[in-house]
Design a protein around this nucleic acid. Structure first.
Lengths: 144, 144
DNA sequence: TTAATAAAAGACAATAATGTCCTTTATTAA
DNA sequence: TTAATAAAGGACATTATTGTCTTTTATTAA
């Protein structure tokens, strides 16, 4: 469904969100440890998230990554996926046709439409806030 | 969503299905041309479909690929996807956790459950017969 | 039996995704 | 101002996916 980069990216973002505000910044090492991801690769992905203004970062002593508290509600899964994998997941034709459309549909166009709609709805309506809440409550997990 | 192999595989299977029975076998060259796919790569994918008993093949003069008419109804999209990409599309955790489950769910487990269910339902209930019918009627397309 | 045909099979090539390592830049505290 | 810290950036390595090419095997028709 998503690329590995995107999976790590989502997990990293959720972890950073759980540390939001009270504990301040989180370092790369801790993030990679807590989401069980390759540290250098995770760094690359975080750079993308920072460039897309989803995560804030600061260098130097006491630096690290954070997400503004008042953005937890407004940041949706779709924003993270879009930043890392682009919009091809939603827009791409299920059978890889380059010009698949209502006027020139592939054989599964109509069938996929509904699945895609569900996926997009879910991604657009799932906020970082609710995802991080599950982690904080110990109901959901970011590794293994 | 699916790998390129799987996209070509589905398109090839549908095309072969449209030639089912009356016109007999279809050759590799024609298949690749009609679904606009790299010919040698398509050959490899067809081998997988043949091994999985989705497509029948025969060598030599007048040989080619075909699908038995009485199997058009029973072959579902899920069979093709499974043969080429395996079942990871449906079973894999959305965030890549190796042991994601109801007891140990990732943060999007519950959210993905419904999307996946929709996808699986669609794949399990879409037959080659109905997909090839759209092509025969000129309502759907296999390339561009 | 031989020649032509077409898929099967295996080896190889190109590209993209994933992952690592090292250097640079910015920040903080001493 | 210097040393320590931590992210940013660039170059490189590994692996998986996609794609090509050549040889082999099976089938048919002459």
């Amino acid at each position: 469904m998503f690329s590995k980069s995107c999976e790590y990216g989502i997990r990293a973002t959720i972890f950073i969100a759980t540390h939001c505000c009270k504990e301040g910044k989180v370092g790369l090492k801790e993030i990679a440890k807590e989401i069980d991801s390759p540290i250098a690769f995770t760094a690359k992905i975080l750079q993308v998230l920072v460039k897309n203004n989803i995560v804030k970062s600061s260098k130097g002593v006491g630096g690290g990554f954070m997400i503004l508290k008042d953005e937890l509600k407004s940041i949706k899964l779709v924003n993270i996926v879009n930043a890392i994998d682009g919009d091809s997941v939603f827009l791409r034709c299920g059978l890889g046709l380059s010009n698949c459309s209502e006027e020139h549909p592939c054989p599964v166009h109509e069938k996929f439409k509904f699945v895609k709609k569900d996926l997009i709805y879910m991604l657009e309506n799932t906020s970082l806030e609710e995802l991080s809440l599950g982690i904080k409550k110990g109901q959901t997990f970011l590794k293994y």
